[in-house]
């Protein structure tokens, strides 16, 4: 009997179990084939749809490959200067506290040129969501070394591999941010397997839910691939990421709760 079921019988509206969310537009993404951005865009869009907050969410796109993220998610957007997305989000959120505001930033944007804006937004505990795509390279400009580039990793500006004496160390910015009292939720995810995609979506959902609770900043790093920049196929890039990046950038939650209570930071006898 099972073999008599034809494909046409399966492909019917009542049997639909997964389709592209309506929060994603029909504009084909400009990203390279296999790029992690597409998956993370989809997850953010699905969370927005499932929470029913499309009219109340405003995104901040960065400078980098994701600068055009505003073409793909059907929400209002602001396009920030390089690294300044957390400042733009802060400026917006402070005068519109009832809105959901998220930034979407790459490693160069967030962890190099925008380090100050990132650290201080999280330290103030801004009630925003920061999505951080760490693919250890500058994709948009053609594969240069990023703050998170691995030691020995070859890029257009580290053609003989990243060297400590010349370039310093790869920056674990997420570990730094997890130390800040303003952070509510700091997690590191990936989207290279179906299981990781599902986990990452849960993390993004929690981050958005936190933002409505006013409990501090939620920060989701997604360790990602840049197969074009790495000069690999998408499948090879996933393997390279697992072998080389995960040991240094281990997946999992670094902080899950809410911003610190002020008690530990209060000086008892402040002299007037």
């Amino acid at each position: 009997m099972e073999d008599t079921l034809k494909i046409e019988d399966i492909i019917k509206p009542e049997n639909l179990v997964y389709k592209k969310t309506s929060v994603l537009t029909d504009v084909p993404m400009h990203y390279c084939y296999g790029c992690s951005h597409g998956v993370v865009h989809k997850l953010v869009a699905e969370v927005i749809e499932e929470m029913g907050i499309q009219e109340d969410t405003v995104g901040v796109s960065p400078v980098g490959c994701a600068v055009l993220a505003y073409n793909y998610l059907d929400i209002d957007w602001m396009q920030a200067a390089h690294g300044r997305a957390p400042a733009v989000a802060t400026g917006y959120k402070r005068v519109n506290p009832e809105k959901y505001v998220f930034t979407y930033q790459g490693d160069g944007d967030l962890a190099a040129i925008g380090t100050a804006e990132t650290m201080h937004a999280v330290n103030r505990g801004e009630n925003i969501v920061i999505i951080f795509i760490n693919n250890a390279i500058y994709g948009m400009t053609g594969g240069q070394m990023a703050p998170t580039t691995m030691l020995g990793q070859q890029t257009a500006t580290s053609p003989y591999g990243r060297d400590i004496d010349l370039n310093g160390y790869p920056l674990k910015i997420t570990e730094l941010l997890a130390q800040l009292p303003g952070a509510a939720y700091v997690t590191r995810q990936s989207v290279h397997t179906p299981g990781n995609v599902r986990k990452c979506k849960k993390a993004i959902r929690k981050a958005f839910e936190n933002s409505a609770k006013n409990i501090g900043t939620s920060f989701v790093e997604v360790v990602s691939t840049c197969n074009s920049g790495w000069k690999q196929t998408p499948v090879e890039a996933n393997e390279w990421m697992e072998e080389n990046m995960f040991p240094f950038y281990p997946l999992g939650d670094l902080k899950d709760g809410e911003r610190e209570k002020p008690d530990a930071y209060l000086v008892q006898k402040l002299k007037k």
Partner: peptide, 26 residues
């Protein structure tokens, strides 16, 4: 009215970008 001391002039100008995007007087 919101008053916020930013971490730098770079950040404050870009905070204006955010606030102004909301149609607010910043």
């Amino acid at each position: 009215m919101v008053v916020l001391q930013a971490e730098s002039e770079v950040a404050s100008a870009n905070m204006l970008f955010g606030g102004a995007s909301a149609g607010k007087k910043v």
